[in-house]
């Protein structure tokens, strides 16, 4: 009886305290799962299209309508040298930008996570601001700087821009990983007579490497895919995204899909290997 009255009170205190029947709850769960599956399918819809249309033999210059199956595109994936050169150019920029941004951003994150100092919150604001500024503003403001300074646009200016937006991402990612890091390990190492550089190399670096690696991969991905900022600061240089857009105005060869499928395959493999290694590492550490 007590539970019943308690139940009555709870139901009376808040309006409409009604417990739905089991079938309604089951239906709710079911609908939620269906909705989630539909959203996952939606996420993959264009990916299926990209892969399928890499096997298409288009009529004319635009690979937009399904005609018939062919393996020709995969036999000659590098037929369009403009696309390949642009891809190489983007890869070069992405590697350098990611390396420089990771080094600078990681040092910044270490400083923020490890030390207490005046101006800490201003530095944090400086990291977050570029992320909350629209890309067209970042790109156009850099362009006004380069115009005012009479800097010719090209490889260097693209690199400058990419490092700029990657640094913030790196600093945030590494800082998040360093939360809860035990800095007394460093003191222990130094107490045992290791000089600071050796301490950094043997103690600090191995512990923060996974975070730094993740930040590098993120920067690489952001750099190689950026179009909006790049188009403002590239001058006549052509990165892969710029080449794709320029090409799409006159033709869309299926080789674009082949290259995209290859990139997807490589990234998924890297991710799978990474998570496998992570799982093994976790298992080893117990």
């Amino acid at each position: 009886m007590t539970t019943l009255s308690a139940r009555h009170e709870a139901g009376g205190a808040v309006t409409g305290g009604f417990t739905p029947p089991v079938w309604a709850r089951k239906l709710g769960t079911y609908l939620l799962n269906v909705w989630a599956s539909v959203v996952l399918l939606y996420l993959f819809a264009p990916i299926f299209v990209i892969i399928a249309f890499s096997f298409n033999k288009p009529k004319g210059r635009f690979n937009y309508l399904w005609q018939r199956f062919t393996l020709d595109n995969w036999r000659h994936p590098f037929r369009y040298s403009d696309l390949v050169h642009a891809m190489e150019y983007s890869l070069r920029i992405a590697v350098i930008a990611a390396a420089v941004a990771t080094a600078m951003g990681a040092l910044m994150a270490i400083a923020l996570a490890r030390y207490r100092f005046r101006g800490n919150s201003i530095v944090n604001l400086l990291i977050v601001l570029p992320l909350t500024t629209p890309e067209i503003v970042l790109g156009s403001s850099l362009l006004t700087l380069f115009i005012s300074a009479n800097t010719p646009r090209g490889f260097t200016t693209i690199l400058i821009a990419h490092i700029m937006f990657c640094v913030s991402f790196v600093a945030l990612t590494v800082k998040a990983r360093l939360r809860g890091f035990d800095w007394t390990l460093e003191d222990a190492s130094m107490d045992l007579g290791a000089p600071p550089w050796r301490t950094f190399r043997k103690v600090t670096l191995p512990l923060i490497t996974p975070g730094i690696l993740a930040a590098f991969l993120l920067s690489f991905a952001l750099s190689i895919d950026d179009y909006i900022i790049t188009v403002f600061v590239s001058g006549n240089s052509v990165t892969f995204p710029i080449q794709v857009i320029n090409q799409a105005k006159v033709s869309v060869p299926p080789q674009i899909n082949v290259l995209a499928t290859m990139v997807l395959g490589v990234s998924v493999t890297v991710m799978a290997i990474g998570s496998l290694l992570g799982a093994r590492r976790a298992a080893r550490l117990g």
């Binding site: 996952l40 996420l43 993959f44 819809a45 264009p46 990916i47 299209v49 990209i50 249309f53 690979n63 937009y64 309508l65 991905a221 190689i224 895919d225 179009y227 892969f240 995204p241 794709v244 857009i245 799409a248 869309v252 674009i256 899909n257 995209a260 990139v263 997807l264 990234s267 998924v268 991710m271 998570s275």
Partner: peptide, 22 residues
């Protein structure tokens, strides 16, 4: 979570061109 992220390993522009196809 990996499945949510995987589609975004392809280029932004190529994904948008795929929507143009669809």
């Amino acid at each position: 979570l990996g499945l949510v992220v995987v589609p975004f390993f392809t280029s932004y522009l190529i994904r948008t061109l795929a929507w143009k196809t669809l």
